[in-house]
Design a protein around this nucleic acid. Structure first.
Lengths: 215, 215
DNA sequence: TCAGGAATTACCAGATTTGGTAATTGATAT
DNA sequence: ATATCAATTACCAAATCTGGTAATTCCTGA
C-alpha cells in the first residue's frame, strides 16, 4: 500500500524538497530518505531498505558514480536511477559501467521522473532520449563485426586458444599431449587460414575478431 | 502539415492495415508506403522519401536486419524503428549493429508505437523496457574496466603498439629508426611492467586491457 | 648537484619460431 | 572407391626472440 520505496541523494536542497513533494503527492511512491551527500550510502540504505535510489552525480565528498558502485557491490537488488544535469559521454558511460539502471536528466518533466522510477523498478532501463541514442551508438561501435568464419578445425581452435593464453609451442604440445611438430603443423594451417605469419598477428587477430574471449 | 512521413515493412497484412489506420487517424503522421517484404527496399525509399521506417524482422525473401543494413548504407538520414515480436539477444543486437535507431515490441500499446516514431524521428532511441535493459547490461559488460596503469613510457607504448599490430623486433626498429637492441631493451622493460615474458602474452594483455584499439 | 628514470646501443648464448617438404592414418563426402 | 580433409609425426636450416649484463647520454626532480 505504500508503493515504491525511494530514497534520494542530491546536494541541491531545493530540488530534494520539490521531489519530496512530488512523491508525497503520489500514492504509488514513498520517500524513505533524502540526503545531500552519499558518504554514508551503505548505512542509509541499510536503514531505509529502498526499492529505488535516485542519484545525483555532482556531490561534495563522494560523487554519485562512486556511490553507485558501493550500492551495486553491497545491495545488488536495489535499482539506481541517475538524475543529473550531465549528459557528457564520460559521465554517462561511467554511471552505466558502475551499474546504474537508468539515466535521466534534470530538465525532464516531473511526470517523466515518476515514470522513470516505475520503469527502473520494474526492470526497465529508462533513459533520456539523447542518452539512449548515445548508448545505442556506443554499442553499435563496439558490437562484434559479422564474424568472419576462418574455417578453423576444432583442433586448430584449441591450439589457437592456448596460444592466445600465452602458451608456447612446447607448452601447447604438453597440454594437448601431442608432439611439438604437430603443434607446428597446426600453427602453419592456422597462419594460412588467418592470413598471418607470426604468433603475435595470430593472437591479435584472434582477440580482435573475438574468436576468443581470451581472458 | 503532413507530419512525420512513415513507411512500413511487415509481412503481416492485418498488422500493416491496423497501423495504416492508426497513422491515418493522427495528423502528426503520414503513411507513405506499406510493404510486405523488403526486397525492393532501396527503390521503395527512393520513391517515398520517408523520415522513419518501421521494420519487422521476420519476412520472406530478405529479413529486416538485412533491410536495415541496406537502408543505413544508402540513406543514412532515414531513421529506422524495429517493430517485432523478437526479444532475443541475438536479434536485438544484430538490429542495433545494423543501425536501427529504436527497438520496440509488437505487444506494445498503439500509443507507444506513435510515441516511439516521434522519438526516433527526433533523435531519441525508443526501446522496449526489457530491450533497454539488455542493451545496458551488454554495455556494462563491454565497457572498459578501470584501466590499470602499467606506467609504460611513451616510447614503450609506441613499441608495444607496433608489436600488437604484428611487427617483429626488426620491423619495429626500422619503423622507429632505432637499433634492434634498443627495441629489445624496451621489450624487456615492457615485459617487466606487464608481468609477462613473451610477445604473445604482451599482445594479449595489451589488447584485453584495451591499451590499444589494436585494429 | 646528485639520483634516478627514459632512451639508446651492444654482445653472448640458449630457447623458440618459421618455412619447406613429406608421409601415415582415419573419417567423410561424392 | 576415390578423393579430400583433419590430425599426426618428422627433419632441416634460417630467422627470431629471450635473459643477463653493461654502458652512455639526456633530462628531471629533490
Amino acid at each position: 500500500m505504500d508503493g515504491i520505496k525511494v530514497i534520494i541523494f542530491d546536494d541541491n536542497d531545493l530540488l530534494r524538497d520539490s521531489i519530496t513533494m512530488l512523491l508525497q503527492d503520489n500514492a504509488d511512491f514513498t520517500l524513505a530518505g533524502s540526503y545531500s551527500h552519499c558518504l554514508d550510502v551503505a548505512e542509509n540504505i541499510m536503514n531505509t531498505k529502498p526499492d529505488v535510489v535516485i542519484m545525483d552525480i555532482d556531490m561534495p565528498g563522494m560523487n554519485g558514480i562512486e556511490g553507485v558502485k558501493l550500492i551495486r557491490k553491497n545491495f545488488p537488488a536495489v535499482q539506481i536511477l541517475m538524475f543529473t544535469v550531465f549528459d557528457e559521454d564520460e559521465k554517462v558511460f561511467a554511471a552505466i559501467k558502475a551499474g546504474a539502471g537508468g539515466y535521466i536528466l534534470k530538465n525532464a518533466e516531473p511526470q517523466n521522473l515518476l515514470h522513470a522510477i516505475s520503469e527502473v523498478y520494474s526492470g526497465g532501463a529508462p533513459m533520456a532520449p539523447g542518452i539512449a541514442r548515445k548508448v545505442l551508438h556506443h554499442l553499435q561501435a563496439t558490437l562484434p563485426e559479422d564474424q568472419k568464419d576462418y574455417h578453423l578445425s576444432m583442433r586448430e581452435k584449441e591450439v589457437l586458444s592456448l596460444l592466445v593464453h600465452g602458451l608456447s609451442y612446447k607448452m601447447i604440445a604438453a597440454k594437448l599431449s601431442i608432439t611439438y611438430d604437430t603443434v607446428r603443423a597446426h600453427m602453419k594451417k592456422i597462419y594460412e587460414k588467418l592470413h598471418v605469419s607470426s604468433m603475435t598477428e595470430a593472437v591479435a587477430k584472434a582477440i580482435n575478431q573475438k574468436l576468443f574471449s581470451a581472458k
